[in-house]
């Protein structure tokens, strides 16, 4: 198939940037979206033009590194990561616009590459159980009902790609933050630091410049891992109950 690509090009963080149009031909429908961009980049490189920079690594939908805003949707038309999106989702003659994630807390570094270290800082604020290596009880001494373990696993599947932020008109990171808070609030291992975790992670999320949630549900609709918005409700509950009975006031 033959396509027209409108791609955001931006030299660096301080450059203003803008769309540039490219024509690309003979694309197979079995290609992944990123392989289609590989083909474009091979052509650009051969012509001596700077290839389009984009983040990607595992290309099997799990590392969370790829991050393109395709035709107005994070990761494109399917509910999957960009690397798992295949060209059979497009038609011959289509025009495809490709932009980086847009959020104050995700500054653009070059072309389609953004800085998501704000997510790391949210986890650093409390997304863990404070146990050191060694000296822990036998794994089977902490029985956990299967239903609870499964719910925790559902939340834990978040890949930290940032599609939820890109999808949200407020650039809110509540789906991401709530996934980690939920996982640990559900499990017995997370109980000891339950309150302080919710308080600190929410505070960090705000400090990074992410917006608030207005319940539009765009994050859930676009999440490639199907993280449920129920987690946001749980986080709000965790946060309010933590603040009301805070030990740190």
């Amino acid at each position: 198939m033959n396509l027209t690509l409108k791609i955001w090009r931006q030299k660096n963080n301080t450059d203003k940037g803008g769309f540039k149009e490219y024509k690309i031909t003979d694309i197979s429908e079995d290609m992944s979206f990123l392989e289609m961009l590989d083909v474009l980049n091979e052509q650009l490189s051969t012509k001596g033009e700077d290839p389009v920079h984009f983040d990607h690594d595992c290309r099997e939908g799990i590392c969370g590194m790829c991050s393109l805003y395709i035709n107005g949707n994070p990761h494109g038309p399917q509910q999957t990561t960009t690397c798992q999106l295949h060209m059979r989702s497009f038609k011959d003659g289509d025009t495809i616009s490709i932009e980086p994630w847009r959020a104050k807390a995700f500054p653009v570094l070059k072309d389609l590459v953004v800085d998501r270290s704000s997510f790391d800082r949210i986890i650093q604020a409390g997304g863990y159980v404070s146990v050191n290596t060694g000296g822990v009880p036998d794994a089977n001494e902490i029985p956990i009902p299967k239903s609870i373990a499964d719910l925790a696993m559902d939340a834990a599947q978040c890949i930290g790609c940032g599609a939820c932020v890109a999808a949200c008109k407020n650039a809110s990171a509540m789906l991401f933050t709530s996934a980690k808070i939920s996982q640990l609030a559900l499990l017995p291992q997370g109980q000891v630091e339950r309150k302080i975790r919710a308080e600190n992670m929410v505070a960090q999320m705000d400090a990074e410049g992410f917006g608030a949630c207005t319940n539009t549900g765009a994050c859930e609709a676009e999440c490639p891992k199907g993280i449920s918005i129920t987690n946001i409700a749980r986080m709000n509950r965790e946060y309010f109950s933590a603040v009301l009975s805070s030990d740190t006031v």
């Binding site: 863990y128 146990v131 902490i142 009902p145 373990a149 499990l187």
Partner: peptide, 14 residues
């Protein structure tokens, strides 16, 4: 396994 469970890794359960 003990270490990972203590960290809150949600292994499959019976």
């Amino acid at each position: 396994i003990d270490q990972c469970v203590a960290q809150g890794v949600p292994f499959a359960r019976e």
